[in-house]
């Protein structure tokens, strides 16, 4: 949780240096959903995601060095600079693939879950989607197939209300998002996506049910994107949402919320959290240093990997 926040804030701060020359879709304000979910997943479990994936990647334990190097286009990056920030991956951490065509990753995750079911390896697959993803036809095809085949997959929807700058109310009729998944006959949950403990609890229920062979589960985590769609800035002044609305959500800061919850249980929590912050800042600083010192890919790499052998 803290790692996601610190990571994204550092990217935001350093982005203006104009050396990370690829788009970044930051998830500040949306730390609780991936943190809660990934805490419930086992290490061997796997995730798939979309363009706003840094939080998912960091929460699942992906290498910071690889991701930051990728932002800088370096040969040490997740995909050696070929994919950029929108194609994050770290196989060792179970982060299989991220792609930025909205909905495009969903059936791939479903097919991967089918392979794991065939192999009987107990791996749970989680695929991240957003509220707008539900407007894509392929999502319904994916829900239908996963439910029909009772595949071990969590459809994890972060509803942050915005598709770029367009609000949910301008894109969908007023209805519970979970109904769309429920129509495909799967268990569904809707949770406060700024409450990491609640997200964790629900994700645990989902994992238990899936491991019993009950088929897919859909979770909606309601949350809010603090910064602009793509880039490091705040954009409450450009007219698609109000400063008031943003401030209301900022009051519900997921990091502060978890901190308060921990303080209630442990009076030394503040000190411990401070130490965590310090440790993580150092880790992130080291990762940036590593990325900056890493080489760019050689020219020959342009013509590598078109076909697999």
């Amino acid at each position: 949780m803290i790692r996601v926040r610190e990571f994204e804030e550092t990217v935001a701060t350093r982005y203006s240096e104009q050396e990370m020359r690829c788009p970044v879709h930051l998830s500040v304000g949306q730390e609780a959903p991936p943190s809660g979910l990934c805490e419930a997943l086992a290490e061997k479990d796997q995730i798939f995601s979309h363009h706003r994936s840094h939080g998912h990647y960091v929460a699942k334990g992906g290498s910071l060095k690889k991701l930051i190097s990728e932002f800088y286009g370096k040969a040490t990056g997740c995909t050696r600079g070929v994919g950029g920030s929108m194609h994050a991956m770290d196989v060792d951490a179970g982060i299989i693939a991220c792609t930025p065509i909205v909905g495009g990753i969903m059936p791939v995750a479903v097919g991967s879950a089918m392979a794991h079911k065939y192999d009987g390896n107990g791996i749970v697959t989680a695929v991240f989607l957003g509220d707008a993803t539900l407007e894509e036809g392929v999502v319904h095809e994916s829900f239908n197939f996963a439910s029909l085949k009772k595949l071990p997959i969590i459809f994890f929807c972060e509803n942050n209300f915005f598709s770029v700058y367009t609000h949910l109310r301008d894109r969908q009729p007023d209805r519970p998002l979970v109904d769309l998944a429920a129509a495909h006959k799967m268990d569904v949950y809707s949770v406060d996506g700024n409450d990491a403990v609640e997200v964790f609890r629900v994700s645990q229920l989902a994992c238990e049910s899936i491991r019993k062979g009950n088929g897919p589960v859909f979770i909606e985590a309601i949350t809010y994107r603090w910064r602009e769609h793509c880039g490091p800035n705040y954009d409450n002044d450009i007219g698609y949402r109000t400063e008031e609305e943003f401030q209301e959500w900022k009051k519900k800061c997921p990091v502060e919320k978890l901190t308060k919850q921990l303080l209630l249980e442990d009076k030394d929590a503040e000190e411990k959290i401070k130490k965590i912050h310090t440790k993580i800042r150092k880790e992130i600083e080291d990762a940036f240093q590593f990325a900056l010192e890493s080489p760019f890919p050689a020219k020959e790499e342009l013509f590598k990997n078109l076909y697999a052998n």
């Binding site: 299989i96 693939a97 495009g104 990753i105 969903m106 059936p107 791939v108 995750a109 479903v110 097919g111 991967s112 879950a113 089918m114 392979a115 794991h116 065939y118 192999d119 036809g137 392929v138 095809e141 994916s142 239908n144 197939f145 029909l148």
Partner: peptide
Amino acid sequence: KDRIFDVPLSENALTGIAVGAATMGYRA
């Protein structure tokens, strides 16, 4: 039926499902 199966009418998702299964070591 595990190895050869009929499908819902979902050409786009099925192609992605093939990609996903292939990623995990199958040949679809």
